[in-house]
Design a protein around this nucleic acid. Structure first.
Lengths: 226, 226
DNA sequence: GGCTGCCTCAACGTATACATTAACGGCCAC
DNA sequence: GTGGCCGTTAATGTATACGTTGAGGCAGCC
């Protein structure tokens, strides 16, 4: 990706934000990586001003830290960070499932959830973990979209970003996620019945299980940060 | 508050952030209020640069919107915003209560919760609604602090800020909050028992009731925004 | 040899300069 | 009178300038 491509977005601030964020999520800049404002400006082909403004956004979103005299630093995600993040996601996504059930959406709106779940199974049978992760993310994303609470969705997306690297990293270390599909479909079924409490609790249990597995892996492999 | 006082904080950016935020939360700048960057800079006694950087933070936090050519605009909070916010707070604070119960805190850590609850009762008996609101906030704040999840706490604080004006506005329109104290103490009791699920569900019920009352008031008084 | 204090330098925070561009008002045609 | 076009102007986005200050190195002292 060259500077010209990154400029495509409206403003240089947006370009800087997108460029830096991409580099972090793609793990091109590992956790702990530091870069001075001037260096960033040079790499992104702009002056320090838009870089600074992008860094403020990224710092607010918890992806980087700005240390005076040391530039920005890509924040690592420790196991305890992951636990905190999963507590937040568990709580908010469970609420999302409840809200979806209360809204009693049309069958067409639920179809993508089922398709995503089926795709997870297919991917699993082919041992294609990347496709599995994509379908899993699609399921969760659609669920959160359907709940109608945009602010809640925005928080969830933000924390997904923060946990992204760790998820990618543990994807191949964890046991085959054979239970996820069934749990997803159980949530959908509860939504279809209009059973908001069941939807909430089933989704909570689903996330809690995922959280436990992740935590266990991180501690087993002594991954102090990702 | 003059410019000099606001400069007290370390950087001008912090001063601008604090100054603008204060004006909004105190309702000196009503929802919808607009101000140009240059005007803000003049009022705060600094140049546009730190003002712009503060506005980015405030916009991220949802207090203002930056519209090119029209400067910043203080965002109103509509009833549907309030509903979204309360859904988030209900879910996260319930999780916080659960986490506190799981941590099995020492009695000394729970004492401030009980004191805050007692202060709410006292304030109510004296018909001092401001003192009631302060004690109520103190209870909720301490609960969220105790849960140990800093990121969760940060989200909660942010959304409290957004809902602050509406809470202050409806404080004197709502029925006397006679149930709150009992509900708070029930949560504390569940925490003391180590009954995490009960703590979570009691707190959820507490917030859901508050949310219902608030929503009802906003619609009864046709408050389309605060 | 290790530690402390000074000095240098560069990174940052802030101010200012400047080109761009959209809002607004006025003017003209109908 | 009304609607549309054009020019003016000011607000913004970005670049650049500049003073301040803290980090790191070096020398001198214990």
């Amino acid at each position: 990706m060259n500077a010209k491509t990154e400029r495509a977005a409206g403003s240089l601030v947006d370009a800087a934000y997108a460029g830096i964020r991409r580099r972090i999520l793609d793990n091109r800049w590992a956790p702990g990586h530091q870069a001075l404002e001037q260096a960033l400006a040079l790499e992104l082909g702009m002056s320090r001003t838009p870089v600074r403004e992008a860094l403020i956004r990224l710092a607010n979103e918890g992806l980087v830290e700005v240390v005076p005299r040391h530039g920005m630093r890509v924040l690592p995600v420790s196991p305890s960070d992951m636990q905190e993040i999963y507590e937040i996601l568990t709580s908010l996504e469970a609420m999302a499932a409840e809200l979806v059930a209360r809204r009693a959406p049309a069958a067409a709106e639920l179809a993508p959830l089922e398709k995503a779940s089926r795709d997870m199974d297919k991917a699993l049978k082919k041992d294609d973990l990347d496709a599995w992760a994509e379908a899993d993310e699609r399921y969760h994303r659609h669920l959160v979209e359907l709940c109608g609470n945009r602010k809640l969705a925005a928080i969830v997306y933000n924390y997904w970003d923060r946990a992204h690297r760790a998820r990618m990293f543990t994807l191949r270390l964890r046991p085959k996620p054979v239970d996820s599909t069934r749990e997803h479909l159980a949530v959908v079924e509860a939504i279809r019945r209009g059973d908001a409490v069941a939807a909430r609790e089933l989704h909570r249990a689903h996330r809690e299980r995922g959280s436990r597995e992740l935590t266990e892996i991180l501690s087993r492999y002594r991954l102090s940060q990702v």
